[in-house]
Design a protein around this nucleic acid. Structure first.
Lengths: 358, 358
DNA sequence: TTGTAAGCGTTATCAG
DNA sequence: CTGATAACGCTTACAA
């Protein structure tokens, strides 16, 4: 069952090869024959068998996409821009999810090899460098998105999480804050590690010793993050005057935790998030945060991958390493440290409340 | 290039058919031969060619997934649960995005036909019923997720948006509200139409005439939604006492609009959202909203699809139509209508602030 | 410009 | 239990 090229060749009164040429706009086919073939294909509601096509030598016209969590809104936005670029190139996407599980990741890689995808966008590295190196050996084009590897020279597109965190903390230091809490997740997340590095570097540069008590690790649910933060605020003998939160979503819980601990943002405690989500400008107070473009990462990753796939085999390909710089967006959730307010006039700080509400 | 089954058969000293049987755990193969084949496959880092496999008669082990916007967080969560179910069945997902564009949708459908996917999960109907009917004719199993068609009997899993809106509005009416604004999007979104139906039905049942002035349509960006809402609140001669917003994300902008119009939530205006996102319980004030499970829709849709795909051809398949009922989650963003506060003691209303902050 | 024929890498049927 | 051998539906030399 299923209509094949034979059927349409028969109906059009031509051979299979002519039909193939006509359908693929390849080679010379008389306008007349082409018209008959196209008509037949249309009449029969023909859908070329992609498997046969790929097997016979054509490319699979498919990209693999591997994410640690395609349900996450940041990854979803990357997925979307990747999909858009792929669609524009007439490619389709095989989407895999690893849940940061090394076994799933290896399985995904194997599936994509079996499907003979033309290239892979990798947004998950749970099993270390080995699988990546194998990809290089096998000559399967790929681009790392939203992450990079220190010890493997690969194409990658990512946002500089270290610098984003660094900017946030430096800004808080300029406001006079010295006790800056960091509310974040366990270390197995790539971005968690990176932002922590930026956090510590900025502290160091400002002569602030790193205090492990101010590093709050929680699991990935808002309720427990809320509770952990509130408990910490109530129990610490030396309260922080600022909190740098892993991202904007979790900042909502932190804002409420501060509030419910009887403190005011930003008067008692400044809060800075990360991601600059759509709604962050509309929180109460509007959230100071770090902006970095998920769409850009996805789009550029996909575009570089296509470039690489189309690169002539005999030409040397120069590794592309794109680092997008995040930007601090200052809103009303942060202000000068209460202890220094006299020394540090608020007017030195540019506010940006209307940037997204205009 | 690429190691084939021939290579591993050669290395294992067996025929290709024996190799195939060993690799697929099909038919009887001597333990000895199987071991040699498996070892060879491992040594050579073999990846079976999925295209050859599909062409030779095996299924493609692939599902199609069509969404209007895979960057949207609600769809992303559906995608995730779909992916998880598929992975558990050892299936992979070809993800398509239509942007509600009929042409893209038809293209996606065609691509999936060409790829000979075993089934399709459809979360986009922009081109009407015709393509769906064709799918039925062609015998390609599919399940509609997050939507349904009135005039075609198809399997589908969706959340009852009408009822969700109905519950929200009925609740507001019980609180004495009679001027209830609905802030929403243009009508081309399926869920927009459905929720509007529920809104109007609840008004009608409570003897409240539908007032077009209270229906606010905006585009999909938060800043313009914010502005539109604020302008409306400032210009309407008869202000609403409650606002039912299309979803929680947009509710953030509405909360700020109310606030910036010099009004208080819920004292002057009650606000009710839709979706019950993670952070909705942490907004200020915590948002009354309607909860409906994206994960459930995705999971059940995928499971029904697998059931259908495995259904014996000769047995009749009874259409499955799963309607998930949303639930109202009452928090602090809503309270009795200011005009009736004397008649309607607040104590009759159950609050649920801790439900997600516990 | 067109047709013939040889693969592509599997699976499946059928003898041995 | 094993091995030829014929599909599967298409692309692509090559020949006409």
């Amino acid at each position: 069952m299923g209509v094949t090229m034979r059927d349409i060749a028969l109906r059009a009164g031509v051979s299979v090869s002519t039909a193939s040429r006509a359908l693929n706009h390849k080679g010379d086919v008389s306008p007349d024959a082409r018209a008959r073939v196209l008509a037949a294909a249309h009449d029969l509601n023909y859908a070329a068998n992609a498997h046969a096509r790929a097997l016979a030598g054509a490319s699979s016209h498919t990209l693999g996409l591997i994410f640690i969590n395609n349900g996450d809104s940041f990854f979803a936005r990357m997925a979307r821009s990747v999909t858009d670029v792929a669609t524009a190139h007439n490619y389709s996407i095989v989407a895999c999810n690893t849940n940061e599980n090394p076994a799933h990741e290896l399985q995904a890689l194997q599936t994509l090899r079996e499907k003979r995808v033309d290239g892979i966008l990798i947004g998950s590295i749970a099993s270390g460098e080995a699988p990546i190196r194998r990809l290089v050996e096998e000559g399967i084009p790929f681009v790392l998105i939203n992450r990079f590897l220190d010890d493997v020279e690969t194409d990658c597109v990512y946002s500089d999480n270290r610098n984003g965190a660094y900017q946030a903390i430096s800004y808080l230091c300029r406001l006079g804050h010295r006790r800056i809490m960091h509310v974040t997740y366990p270390d197995d997340r790539f971005a968690v590690r990176e932002r922590l590095i930026g956090y510590r570097r900025a502290l160091a540069e400002n002569g602030i010793p790193y205090d492990p008590c101010l590093l709050l690790r929680t699991d990935l649910s808002l309720p427990s993050l809320y509770q952990t933060t509130k408990d910490a605020l109530c129990s610490l003998d030396l309260r922080p005057t600022a909190i740098f939160v892993y991202n904007d979503t979790t900042s909502t819980a932190v804002l409420k935790a501060v509030h419910d601990a009887g403190l005011a943002v930003p008067h008692d405690i400044s809060v800075v998030g990360y991601d600059n989500l759509d709604y962050s400008a509309f929180l109460d107070p509007p959230l100071t945060t770090v902006t970095h473009a998920a769409d850009e990462i996805g789009r550029m990753g996909a575009e570089i991958l296509f470039e690489k796939m189309q690169w002539p085999q005999d030409q040397p390909w120069a590794i592309r390493r794109v680092v997008l710089q995040p930007e601090l967006v200052i809103r009303q959730s942060s202000e000068a440290c209460p202890h220094n307010r006299a020394n540090q006039p608020e007017t030195t700080i540019e506010h940006d409340s209307q940037r997204h509400a205009a």
